[in-house]
Design a protein around this nucleic acid. Structure first.
Lengths: 331, 331
DNA sequence: CTGAAAGCGCTTACAG
DNA sequence: CTGAAAGCGCTTACAG
């Protein structure tokens, strides 16, 4: 069944398409009788305006392009949920595209958005910042997410350093002095910031404490392996800070397997606050991805409504959530 | 900076816009020299075709509208990931819209898609099937997800009955005879199907076994409460099947708190296979939301490429994953 | 308040 | 192989 067009409505209501358009868009300059006839015709025909035509004509799509890496689990849905809420509130839709490592594909994904989005939210994972900057359309406002320090673009990110510092302070307050840090992939900017922020803060809040960095890959198994490795190498440690929760949980499992008491012998903390962390009593830093998504959309729609508005750059500080893995207290 | 249009490219290359269009779209009927000049102009101007204009002209958007309820956690990302992969493979983009309980809002979300999508994938949660059917645009191919048995539309869903039956058979094989089922919300079709499928299968595979159904709401707390309640009421039971993992985990916690051994005294099984299930050794039914998303997109793109193709309706059978909560064996 | 007409940026018969 | 022209479905000055 062919969808009715504005022309069909005009014919049915015996008015011009201009009047139909005015009615549909709630313009004031339309006589009551005309308005009623048009509305009736719209109902009769089940007319729905064609969004592509409207976009083309108005050069406005009321759509935000979202380009994100192939995120796993909670993060992704939280981020999208946050964006969706803010977008809905501002009257925007989300055009979603996941960006893989492939640069050509990423370029294509961005190109495919031209004309159908008013602005872009991009979370670049494996793309080089300079390269990314070059492929971002100059004609569209862009908000960047995480890890990109782009000079004159708006961005929102997790404050990894502040988060890691909170863990360091927490360990120091607990009197822990021999710390193991299980790091994420060296290539990952979050991983680097967490390590550096942790090391710097530890130096301040627990002068003289020892810190050993073990490699990891954000996977549970690598957390387990790091603990096994440290014990193998006869390192002594009374606390572990893993760069994310999955590795922290892996580490906890390995400690339990070896009957090493958590937190009496070794306190453990992670980063992210995935649902399992609460369940298993893991102390961690709560990262609000939904909040990041929300802020990004709000900044973008604000820029869209009022071009030439100031660039907004912000690091959201995660919140320390203390659980049994560091204090022994079950909630 | 104003984006270059096809007109700018034509002028720059000294050809007609028709030739530019042909070149861009890889048509064969364009002379080598012309092609080269056009390509050069495209590069010089950084030209990217306007998707809205193309959509309007071709009445084709290469975009799939996705309307889903405000899903939580893993499910959402898995579903989207599955869709995204299949969409990307078929050369489609995803326009995402979450659908809340509000019918007017849902209608608006659907209307906003007209003209910018070639087809729709809809997962209706709280919308009445008949009502939904009425608001779905007749002009667009639609694939429904979960819980909607729409006669002549394509749909994909979880085979809840088969999944629940697998749990019943598993319990029967373990020799359990006094079963507690913690049900999801009565209003939820998944919850009803799981209960009914479980009851029916249990009658077959463990004739004479007792079954008590306890109310729940899919939340962890209600799983805990159901166990407390059952004990309070002095029910005896040697197995619990919760309609989802969260309730199963709540139930397990309550059992542990009361020092009731799992699985020796009471075996526990859930449904979904959320990440925590593996971590905590919960036997469950693995539901592949990514697979459902993938199938839905594939069915839709197939219908788009070849209109008039047969309606596809399929229930994906979840897979029984046996873990320590029923067998006691740690992997 | 209303309509005829131009225009948004493309694609595609149609003629040559 | 190429270009002029019509058309996709809207919106919006412009005149009246």
């Amino acid at each position: 069944m062919r969808q009715a067009t504005i022309r069909d409505v005009a014919r049915q209501a015996n008015v011009s398409v201009a009047s139909v358009s005015r009615t549909i868009n709630g313009h004031s300059n339309v006589n009551a009788a005309t308005l009623e006839r048009v509305l009736q015709a719209v109902r009769d025909l089940g007319y729905v305006p064609n969004a592509a035509a409207r976009s083309l004509s108005m050069a406005l799509s009321h759509t935000i392009g979202v380009v994100v890496p192939d995120l796993h689990g909670e993060f992704f849905s939280e981020l999208i949920r946050g964006m969706d809420g803010a977008a809905r509130a501002a009257g925007y839709q989300l055009l979603l595209s996941t960006m893989h490592a492939d640069v050509a594909e990423a370029r294509h994904a961005l190109a495919a958005m031209h004309g159908r989005v008013d602005g872009l939210i991009v979370m670049a994972a494996q793309i080089d910042p300079a390269e990314l900057d070059a492929m971002l359309p100059a004609s569209l406002p862009v908000v960047l997410l995480n890890g990109v320090g782009g000079g004159d673009r708006s961005w929102f990110a997790i404050d990894n350093r502040a988060g890691a510092a909170a863990v360091a302070d927490h360990f120091a307050a607990l009197g822990r002095r021999s710390i193991l840090h299980i790091m994420g992939p060296e290539a990952n900017v979050d991983a680097r910031e967490r390590r550096d922020g942790f090391a710097a803060a530890l130096k301040r809040s627990a002068p003289g404490a020892s810190l050993t960095v073990m490699p990891g890959d954000f996977g549970e198994e690598s957390g387990r392996a790091a603990v096994a490795d440290a014990i193998e190498r006869q390192l002594t440690f009374d606390a572990i800070f893993a760069a994310n929760d999955m590795m922290a949980l892996g580490a906890m499992q390995e400690l339990q397997r070896r009957s090493i008491d958590v937190p009496d012998k070794v306190a453990v903390a992670g980063f992210d606050d995935i649902p399992m962390a609460r369940f298993l009593g893991l102390t961690t830093m709560r990262v609000r991805m939904d909040e990041i998504g929300k802020r990004a959309v709000e900044a973008l729609t604000a820029a869209l409504d009022e071009p030439g508005r100031a660039v907004k750059q912000e690091r959201l500080v995660p919140e320390l959530v203390v659980r049994a893995s560091t204090t022994g207290e079950r909630q």
